[in-house]
């Protein structure tokens, strides 16, 4: 099975492990991720204003590229996924916006035809957790807290990944990998996000709430799909490891080799 793949800029720099483990695990599970050529940064956040067009064009290019290859698009980074998916939703549902984009892009018309999977959805809906469970060689054996943050789940009308208030997609993966999923109240609360840049105190407070909540519930490790969530938690005095879910997966599947290559 082949999918178009958009890693995004952070995965090429500070979050290389999120990318590498995603590809290796996918290969192990029989899925090839073909990186889109000449992609550009998605911009990190989706600007909800209806008159913002230019900031969304890079996402449309990514979506069109996948469409040309007649492949579904896979993303891993929570932010990239959120931006690309919200852009695609706007292309489907906001005729005025789609019209402006299509007039600007002077190629074939695009109206949001590309199907987008977050890596987690690829695991759950395409590969299947049962198959993953069979492929596990190193069961995790730890208490793992899934940290969703906001970008994977909201706005639910667009993201449609899971119940935004009581999700299970990461917990079910943890269980399939032989770990114990820890449920805690703030797993879908914001880490503080981009506000870290000008107000580290606010971001710190938000992250600490998440960390405390996870630790109180008995977590030994926190797992996330978002480089910014990981950074915010780690910068806010988190004394338990915060790892990318692809790293956890690669470890369980036995494909976590030395990445300083």
């Amino acid at each position: 099975m082949k999918f178009s793949y958009f890693p995004g800029c952070t995965l090429k720099n500070k979050a290389k492990s999120l990318d590498i483990y995603a590809r290796r695990s996918a290969e192990k599970l029989g899925v090839t991720l073909e990186e889109i050529e000449n992609w550009q940064c998605c911009g990190g956040v989706f600007t909800t204003a209806k008159d913002e067009v230019a900031t969304k064009l890079s996402s449309v290019r990514i979506l069109k590229d996948a469409q040309k290859k007649q492949q579904a698009l896979v993303t891993v980074c929570s932010a990239c996924h959120n931006v690309v998916k919200q852009t695609n939703y706007a292309m489907q549902n906001d005729k005025e916006f789609a019209g402006k984009v299509n007039r600007y892009m002077s190629e074939d018309e695009y109206n949001g035809e590309t199907q987008i999977y977050h890596y987690l959805e690829l695991l759950r809906d395409v590969i299947g957790y049962d198959k993953i469970k069979e492929s596990v060689v190193n069961p995790i054996g730890k208490k793992v807290a899934a940290y969703y943050g906001c970008l994977l789940l909201r706005p639910n009308a667009v993201m449609r990944m899971d119940d935004p208030e009581n999700p299970t997609i990461i917990e079910d993966l943890i269980k399939a990998l032989g770990g114990e999923a820890v449920i805690y109240g703030y797993r879908n609360e914001c880490c503080g996000g981009y506000v870290r840049m000008e107000s580290p105190e606010l971001a710190g407070k938000k992250s600490q709430t998440v960390i405390e909540s996870a630790k109180k519930a008995g977590a030994e490790v926190i797992v996330t799909a978002c480089p910014l969530c990981k950074y915010n938690l780690e910068k806010s005095g988190c004394d338990i490891p915060v790892v990318y879910l692809t790293e956890l997966l690669a470890e369980a599947l036995g494909v976590k080799e030395d990445t300083n290559e």
């Binding site: 990190g44 840049m197 000008e198």
Partner: peptide, 12 residues
């Protein structure tokens, strides 16, 4: 360690 994501988001 600052992820690129933070810088581009903040600029947006």
């Amino acid at each position: 360690e600052t992820p690129q994501q933070l810088i581009v988001s903040a600029f947006r």
